[in-house]
Amino acid sequence: MGVDVVLKQVSQPGTSSKRRQLTQVDVAPDGNDVFAGICARSKLPMLSRVDPYGDLILTTAEMPQFIAEVNEELGIASTGPERELLAGLRRLAERCAAETSTELHLEGD
């Protein structure tokens, strides 16, 4: 029931959404359900929207809020695996914020 966080490059030549292509650039896997657990207990608006069984796609415009929420959770993280995963998520989010042709996909099982 983990939630993998995947940075994807978006390519869309022309205006047709049918030509939209996604390429995986980087990933922070949630093999031990660490991120899913953080999201389940979080009271923060964006993280509490994460569905461990569905997908949530975040754009560059949403990265400031996502980064702020990840930083807040990082400040209260109690275990090494939580801190390590959140630091990796922040790195992916910062990269997404800097590269406007990317999206962050939060992919549940």
Rank of each mutant, 00 (worst) to 15 (best):
L89Y: 05
K18V: 14
F66V: 13
A28K: 00
K43E: 12
L85S: 09
S11Q: 14
E94T: 13
Q12K: 10
R49L: 14
S78A: 15
L47C: 06
E84G: 02
L56H: 09
L56Q: 13
Y53Q: 14
Y53L: 14
R91D: 15
T23F: 10
I38T: 03
E94Q: 15
A77M: 02
T23R: 15
F66K: 05
A36R: 02
R19T: 11
Q9D: 13
N71C: 11
L56G: 05
D33L: 04
F35C: 03
L92P: 05
Q9V: 07
K43F: 00
N71K: 15
L56D: 07
D55W: 11
Q65R: 13
L56V: 08
N71W: 08
F35H: 08
L22Q: 01
A68Q: 09
R91P: 03
L58V: 04
K18Q: 15
F35I: 01
V70W: 02
I76K: 03
A40D: 07
D51T: 00
L44K: 07
R49H: 09
T15Q: 14
L86D: 04
I57E: 13
R19M: 13
L22V: 03
P81G: 05
L92M: 04
A40H: 01
E82T: 02
P81W: 04
Q65K: 11
S17R: 11
K43R: 11
L74A: 07
F66P: 06
G54E: 00
L58D: 05
G88H: 08
L22F: 13
I38M: 06
Q65E: 14
G31L: 08
G75P: 03
V10I: 12
R41Y: 00
Y53V: 12
L47P: 09
I38F: 01
Q12Y: 08
K18H: 15
I76Q: 06
K43V: 10
C39G: 05
I57K: 12
L47W: 00
K43W: 02
S42V: 01
K8C: 06
Y53F: 14
V27P: 05
L58T: 04
E72D: 03
E62K: 12
Q65T: 14
E84K: 06
G54L: 04
D33N: 12
D26Q: 05
D30C: 01
K8S: 05
E94C: 12
L47Q: 08
D30P: 00
K43P: 03
P29K: 02
Q12S: 09
N32G: 08
D33P: 07
P81F: 07
I57L: 15
A40Y: 01
E84V: 04
T60D: 11
P13S: 13
L22S: 01
V34S: 03
Q24L: 04
E84N: 04
S42H: 08
L58W: 04
K18G: 15
L92D: 07
G54R: 00
Q21W: 02
E94N: 14
G14Q: 08
K18D: 15
T15W: 13
S42Q: 06
I67T: 10
C39I: 01
P45N: 13
E73H: 02
P64Q: 08
R91C: 06
Y53S: 14
